[in-house]
């Protein structure tokens, strides 16, 4: 598990740039806040001070969610692409986000008290992502064509959309409103006090991912070769689906469905690092995924006084053309 020298340099540069980008994100909002406000908001918080509250309650959670959502979805996308040996795979296109959405829709629109609580929404998103991950995994045994599997993923997405539409027609206006707001996607739903729990989930996901590096590297050379190397492919796939469910579920529960990050970023990372070493790819996905998401959010904040763009829309605007480029490249 070594990282090539050239890639080490790129990773090192990204690590150096990372705090700069975080700083830019923290101070990019419409409202000007000072550096001392930032320090005080963390170390000496005064809830009477509006600037400190803005940093602590708005900007730090938003920054954290930007990092986790970008990094987490990209890693989940990388796993999907390696597992299905398909560069067009990703949690969104394979219907894993749709699974989360469907279960969140059930939880929000049924009106059952536990399900409508925060914990209920998170659990629903995790279960939904896991079940739909298993469904797509089952289909992967039945169909060998990459395109067919993607089509099945898209169909799963259409299927869940249809169910969600039916649920929407039957739900109470307020529940419908809540769900519609959630589908728009936002990095601003999280409170400062919720961050430790979300970070913990994320660390669990990333920690488990580190155990997957060797099996993932083996899977790149093919399933049969991986078997000869002593990799239990079935268990590995199940583990990968579980990690993807944790990462995608927790992000989807708090930020809503975010499109294309999980698909586009792993491809960008592979283009930059030109390696199949999943240690490099994993770190690269985390860093570049976070970079991608934070940059999108900085653009949103800079343009905020002129035009309001939902995060979901911006990731799709940037991500969708990128997918077309990948498809065209493959055809060429």
């Amino acid at each position: 598990m070594t990282v090539a020298r050239n890639n080490k340099f790129i990773l090192f540069t990204l690590v150096l740039l990372f705090p700069i980008l975080c700083g830019m994100h923290l101070f990019a909002g419409e409202i000007t806040v000072s550096f001392s406000d930032f320090w005080n908001s963390v170390l000496n918080y005064n809830d009477e001070n509006t600037s400190q509250t803005i940093i602590r309650e708005f900007r730090i959670p938003r920054l954290t969610m930007g990092i986790l959502a970008g990094g987490g979805l990209s890693i989940a996308g990388l796993f999907m692409q390696t597992m299905f040996n398909n560069p067009l795979a990703g949690p969104y296109i394979l219907g894993i986000n749709s699974g989360s959405s469907l279960f969140v829709a059930f939880s929000v629109m049924t009106g059952i008290p536990f399900l409508t609580s925060n914990l209920g929404t998170i659990s629903s998103a995790l279960i939904g992502a896991f079940i739909f991950g298993l469904i797509i995994l089952s289909f992967s045994y039945l169909v060998k064509s990459h395109i067919s599997l993607l089509l099945i993923g898209i169909m799963l997405g259409s299927f869940t959309s249809a169910i969600v539409s039916i649920l929407q027609t039957m739900s109470e206006p307020n529940q419908l409103k809540l769900f519609t707001m959630w589908t728009m996607g936002s990095l601003q739903q999280v409170e400062y006090t919720e961050l430790p729990m979300i970070i913990l989930f994320f660390i669990v996901g990333i920690g488990l991912s580190l155990f997957m590096i060797k099996p993932l590297n083996a899977l790149v050379i093919g399933e049969s070769q991986a078997l000869t190397l002593g990799i239990h492919v079935k268990y590995v796939r199940l583990a990968l689906i579980s990690i993807t469910a944790i990462l995608t579920g927790i992000i989807t529960a708090y930020c809503g469905p975010i499109a294309f990050v999980g698909l586009a970023v792993p491809n960008i990372v592979k283009m930059i690092f030109k390696t199949q070493s999943h240690l490099t790819l994993l770190i690269g996905c985390f860093l570049i995924g976070s970079f991608f998401m934070l940059t999108c959010d900085i653009i949103i904040q800079v343009l905020e006084s002129t035009i309001h763009i939902p995060i979901n829309a911006l990731t799709s605007i940037i991500g969708a053309p990128f997918v077309i480029v990948i498809v065209l490249k493959r055809l060429a």
């Binding site: 909002g29 409202i31 509006t50 509250t53 309650e57 708005f58 307020n174 739903q189 919720e194």
Partner: peptide, 30 residues
């Protein structure tokens, strides 16, 4: 953020579109 800055100390809030504080916090805890 702008709304928060402008209205953190504003006395009255009209027409939030929900009926309970619980629903309000569910849509946005802040």
């Amino acid at each position: 953020e702008q709304i928060f800055k402008d209205n953190v100390n504003t006395k009255y809030w009209f027409n939030p579109g929900v009926e309970s504080k619980k629903e309000l916090l569910k849509s946005q805890p802040k």
